[in-house]
Structures are given as structure tokens and as C-alpha cells.
Amino acid sequence: MGGLLFASAVGVTPTPSFFQELAAMVLPTLGHQIMAYAAFGLYVLLIVGGGLAAALARTLVRALMGLVVTFLGVAGMYLLMASPFLAFMQLLIYIGAICVLIFFAIMLVRNTASGEEMHLPGLGQAAFAGLSAVGVLAVFGPVIVLNAGALMKDALPTETPLAELGEGLLNYYVMPFELISVILLVAMAGGAFLAYERRFKAQDEVTKP
């Protein structure tokens, strides 16, 4: 505290390492852990709440908003695992691109007000859905709880430098990296083809007779 006052009095901008030292002094390891678990709980809350809204909301736009909240929670999880680049990519790709795409889909198929989603699913459908969820939880939950403790590494995860990620993209993963660009190109071309071809056909049919 005295150091902080001193720094502000002299006008020296404190470096980040200074704040880190201060945090290390003020917050013992237990405090860090409690904060980490609190953040984890918040993110789990975001994931579960948003996920339930996305899976069960009767309006598709609300479901999409739930999906955005879920994505935010997962981005927070990536931050907790010391991978800020992934969190950034999560925000950029999922929230920035995919959610906008889904919103386009909702608008294009005009299914918000009068749509099928307003009806509740049938009893058999709902039962099957619940059964599958419970089954997955019952099968994988015990496996995770029983085995994860032994597999866990002792040290805290550290942030991977971005240069290492780039190197991995160009060395170990060079083939998938090239293939995914092909896949994106094919998906884009296929999407354009599918969306345009029917329209030209429809125009032909209109003009023919």
C-alpha cells in the first residue's frame, strides 16, 4: 500500500509487474483459488442458463440469445484455462459469425411468430430427449469424476505463446490447416450454389408458359 501511494505521489506509472506483486502480497494463494472457483461458478451458471434457454425457449430469437450467453460462458472457461487467444476466437467466430448466420437463418425462414417451435414437443419426443441427456450424464459423469483426478497435472496451466500456436499451425497441423481452407471454400461455394440455383430454375418455370 505504501508503495502504491509512493508511486502515485512521484508520478511514476506503475508497471503491471508492480500490480502483480501487490496482488501477490494482498491476495494469498487461497484468495486466488476462491476467486477462481467463484469465476468458474459464474461461467457454469452462464453456460447452464443460456443452454437451457437455447434448448427450451419457444421463440427462436430467445433461443439464439441463450446461445450467445452460453458462448460467453465458454469463452470465460477458456480464459480460466489460461488460453486468452481461444477466448478471443470464441467471441470472434461463434458470437461474431455463427450467431449472425443463425439469425439470418431465423429471418430467412420466417418462423418466429406463427412457427412450429411455438408448440411444445410431443410427449415421446420430450421423454426421449430427457432420457438421452440423463443417459449421457450417467455414463460419462462417473467416468470423469473417477478418472480426472489421477490425470490432472500438478502445475497450473500457463499461457501458450502465440508464436508457438502459429508454429504448430505450420508444422504439425499444416495438413488440417490447408484442408480447412478447402472446406471453407467448398462450403461457401456450395452455399452460394444451393441458394442461387433454385431461384434461376423458378424464374425459368415462371417465364416458360
Partner: peptide, 24 residues
């Protein structure tokens, strides 16, 4: 947490009635 996402996604995938909901 990942398992919860899997379970919730399965519930949505099965109980949704339209393709948009299934995509979500």
C-alpha cells in the same frame, strides 16, 4: 461443464421441431 453442454445440446437437438432450432 463440457458434459453439461453435451447433455443440454442433446435435449435441444431431439426436442426441437425445426431445422433452425436443431442448428442452435
Amino acid at each position: 461443464a463440457a458434459l453439461l453442454l453435451l447433455a443440454i445440446g442433446l435435449v435441444g437437438l431431439i426436442s426441437r421441431r425445426t431445422l433452425v432450432g436443431m442448428l442452435i
